[in-house]
Amino acid sequence: MEDKAISPTESLQIIEKMLADTRNRFYNNGFAFLFWGLLIIIICLTSFATHALGHEGRDGWIWGIGISVGIIATAMYFWKIAPKTRKFTRLDAINGKVWIGYAISYFVLMFLCAHYHLFAPPFIYLLLGMGMFITGGIYKFWSLYAGAIIFWLGAVISALLPMNNSQLLLTSLLMFLGYLLPGYILWKKAKGEAHV
């Protein structure tokens, strides 16, 4: 049987369909943006409330417990739940490696900031902006590019603000605008395209 040659137009249509299929499945993967955005906002507001009540020394516990819960929940989702509900594409695998790289860089950054007595949030926002930008490029979603820009601007603003409770409010705002909102827009768009 002879293989049929496809035209450049047909080739482009196949590529566009593959990208659309990936976007249609990605609404399930929107879990990470929605979950982490909401979790960090809750951690920030809890920390802000403890400061307001005069319990400043509780920050380490609040962040440690919150991040640990987030890591466990994310691992459970991607190892147990997501494989049953969706098929992962090569783009999903690449994106997963981006965020694994982010997580490793985050922990190394935390060590370096503690060792050199540096204020970590501006550097965290810088890393988040990079992760969002790369993910936006992988999936071609404008809301993720917008999230990246918000985090990069947040890094500059954070460096200019005093190191007090205002940083917790800034983090909450950045997570809402730069992570939760773009993740929700992405989830809704992909869900609509998938007719779910």
Rank of each mutant, 00 (worst) to 15 (best):
I72N: 07
A114V: 11
N95C: 10
N95G: 15
W79Y: 12
L112R: 00
A75R: 10
F111R: 02
Y102E: 00
L91D: 14
V69R: 09
A93P: 15
K84T: 00
W99I: 00
I81C: 04
D92H: 07
T89K: 12
L91E: 06
Y102R: 04
M110H: 04
G70V: 08
P83R: 02
T85H: 01
Y77T: 11
A93V: 13
I72M: 03
F78G: 07
A75Q: 09
L109D: 06
A73L: 13
W99D: 04
V108N: 03
K84E: 04
I94V: 15
V69W: 05
I71K: 07
V108H: 00
M76G: 11
T74M: 03
A75P: 03
A82D: 01
V108Q: 00
A114Y: 06
T74D: 02
A114R: 12
L112H: 02
A93W: 14
F111Q: 09
A73C: 14
Y116D: 01
I72R: 02
G96S: 03
T89D: 13
G70Q: 07
Y106G: 02
A93I: 11
C113E: 00
F107Q: 02
W99G: 05
F88C: 08
G101M: 07
K84G: 03
A73F: 11
K97M: 15
Y116Q: 01
A82R: 12
M110W: 08
C113W: 05
F88A: 12
A75D: 04
K80H: 11
K80E: 12
K84Y: 05
T89S: 15
I94W: 04
K84M: 04
S105A: 14
I94D: 02
D92L: 00
T85S: 01
F111G: 01
Y102M: 04
K84Q: 04
M76L: 14
T85R: 10
G101C: 06
I100D: 05
I71C: 08
M110I: 13
R90L: 01
A82E: 03
D92I: 00
H115T: 15
I71D: 04
T74G: 05
W79R: 13
A82Q: 08
N95A: 12
F107T: 06
K84C: 01
G70A: 08
H115M: 10
K84W: 03
A93K: 15
